[in-house]
């Protein structure tokens, strides 16, 4: 009987090993087959002249350019907002926290890491409602608010990678630094932080990926389908991920649908490239310390 169940288990394993890659490859292959031919200047700018569109002289109505610009600014703002607290938390957890602080702060960050992204979006939405009822009656959702909520979303990613990178600094380097008369803070800023920079940077790249792909947060915080280029920090904006969702549910004609495929392919490629970049950074970081030890 045991023998039989093991055979079933082994067969299942082999089945999954074939099934799962096939499933994913079919989904991705389908997307690429329909989306890859769409990639090109037309996809971005539609009928508008690329140069004029990039300079903002003409609006782009049937291209992904405004969405790309929106996503770009969203990601930049998010990283600007999240890097300082996120990486700071990671350094603190690894270097300075007492065991009790480690437990509490670690639990809080873990909890935040598992939080559904839509809750962050709801948080931003509530913030605006609160502002409207109190000090700013005409507060509205916009780019900055979305970036702030996304910053909360990617904060655990940054914290975890910074914490791991700092923990990977070898003990021998710590002893050598202490023996040279560095105080804890001096050693941290002049030696350990530069040594861990690559690992931390890998985390930043991962965070960029998370911020670029997320849709649920921005759904609540100011994304719209036809905003054009973002007008400012407080303005509405378009985003690649939202455009994909919007087109899938509201597309009018074949051309718009194809644009959706193009957008999905583009976002997929960007995400995979970011993941690859993060892996390269992380691997280089590990190699450096492993050859040294």
């Amino acid at each position: 009987m045991r023998r039989f169940s093991f055979l079933v288990f082994r067969a299942l394993c082999t089945l999954c090993a074939v099934l799962v890659p096939c499933l994913v490859l079919v989904l991705m292959g389908y997307l690429f087959r329909r989306g890859l031919p769409e990639l090109g200047l037309d996809l971005l700018f539609g009928r508008a002249d690329p140069l004029d569109a990039v300079l903002g002289r003409v609006p782009v109505w049937d291209g992904l350019w405004p969405a790309c610009v929106g996503t770009f600014w969203l990601v930049v703002l998010t990283v600007l907002l999240a890097v300082f607290p996120g990486v700071g938390c990671g350094i603190y957890l690894s270097e300075l926290a007492s065991p009790r602080q480690k437990r509490i702060l670690g639990a809080a960050v873990d909890m935040l890491a598992g939080m559904p992204s839509i809750v962050m979006g709801l948080f931003g939405f509530m913030l605006i409602l609160l502002l409207r009822r109190t000090v700013l009656p005409d507060a509205n959702t916009g780019l900055l608010l979305a970036a702030g909520c996304l910053a909360l979303l990617v904060l655990p990613v940054l914290t975890a990678s910074a914490r791991e990178a700092m923990a990977a600094v070898p003990d021998s380097l710590r002893l050598a630094a202490a023996a040279c008369g560095f105080s804890r803070a001096q050693a941290l800023f002049h030696l350990f932080l530069p040594a861990a920079a690559r690992g931390i940077l890998g985390g930043v790249v991962l965070a960029v990926g998370r911020a670029a792909e997320d849709t649920a947060v921005i759904l609540f915080t100011g994304v719209v389908a036809n905003a054009g280029l973002p007008s400012g920090l407080l303005g509405k904006f378009e985003a690649l991920s939202f455009d994909i969702y919007y087109i899938s549910s509201q597309y009018q004609d074949q051309q718009e649908l194809l644009r959706g495929f193009g957008a999905a392919t583009l976002l997929l490629v960007i995400s995979c490239l970011l993941l690859a970049a993060a892996r390269v950074l992380e691997r280089g970081f590990r190699k450096k310390w492993q050859t040294k030890a």
Binding site: L31, T215, F261, L267, L275
Partner: peptide, 11 residues
């Protein structure tokens, strides 16, 4: 792990 959920959904 890196595939955006919205892309999964679209496909």
């Amino acid at each position: 792990t890196a595939i955006p959920t919205v892309v999964y959904g679209f496909a």
